[in-house]
Design a binder for these strands. Structure first.
Lengths: 148, 148
DNA sequence: AAATAATACATGTATATACATTAAATGTCA
DNA sequence: TGACATTTAATGTATATACATGTATTATTT
């Protein structure tokens, strides 16, 4: 359904405005779909993001700073997200010997298993998204351009 | 900057995955920029969304249901958002005579003034976004397609 | 070395979000 | 009509977000 119908707005002053509104709308659409998945694993989307970053680093540790830099939502509180993941046994946290301000965060075996399963399920649900590889590349390049 | 550099991820398995991650990232980028603006007016982005919907209806009233349907984030709690706007004197809320379950929500003069100023400022800040009308149309159509 | 600045992370807080539940009004249909 | 379902909005709640502040450690300057 076109964005105009989704939010019942007859028209936009400019295409740029329409594109921006559509971006916000589509984000929430996508996030709601994702949330349902993550919820079945007992984690939030931000926690999932942290786990994916830690999986990318594995078996090397990541600092809170590194996690924050790579997160999709920079205003998330990585420190607290790691707390939550720790409570669930999905990560380990150690003092960093080189710099005692830093902490070494590692994904646990349990965390790895969860994230692998979750990625698999994610990929499956992504299949219904009706974008070719060419179209996906176009949209990604335009998003890059949008951010200047 | 390309998404790969923004989040320091060397490559993605598919362009589709890259596009989705880029969508999430760009959303947060855009939202952070917007938040600063709204904050200067003492409202949140969701409250701004409600005001724009009410402005579109003006001088007709809108029910909570209508607001919810048109919001970009469907999981927002329009009832509470209207509460907040009411406290600031930006909207009016009346019992609906036709259906006593419903409420008639109207934007106030003060609310109209705020939203007009805010839209103006918004448009100004949008100018830096480097997308042509053609590109904007392409991206919007692809987002529509993405949602099936 | 002592003073000062910068960094890395944790914590405090007010508000927002996500989702379930409740309450009142209206609709439906035997 | 009366019983039950549906609709509409408000409320309860646990958690998350946004942003400021605090605290310990390391780096830099004089």
């Amino acid at each position: 359904m076109r964005i105009e119908e989704e939010i019942k707005q007859a028209k936009f002053k400019t295409n740029k405005e329409k594109a921006l509104v559509n971006l916000l709308y589509t984000y929430h659409w996508l996030k709601n779909a994702h949330n349902k998945q993550y919820k079945s694993y007992g984690i939030s989307s931000q926690q999932y993001n942290v786990l994916r970053i830690l999986r990318g680093q594995h078996p090397k540790p990541a600092s809170i700073k590194l996690i924050t830099e790579r997160m999709l939502d920079k205003s998330s509180n990585a420190s607290r997200l790691v707390d939550k993941l720790l409570l669930k046994g999905l990560v380990e946290r150690h003092n960093c010997p080189d710099d005692r301000r830093q902490v070494d965060v590692l994904i646990s075996k349990k965390g790895l298993e969860l994230v692998e399963k979750s990625i698999e399920e994610n990929n499956k649900s992504m299949e219904v998204i009706n974008l070719s590889e060419e179209e996906s590349d176009v949209i990604s390049n335009l998003l890059d351009k949008m951010r200047g």
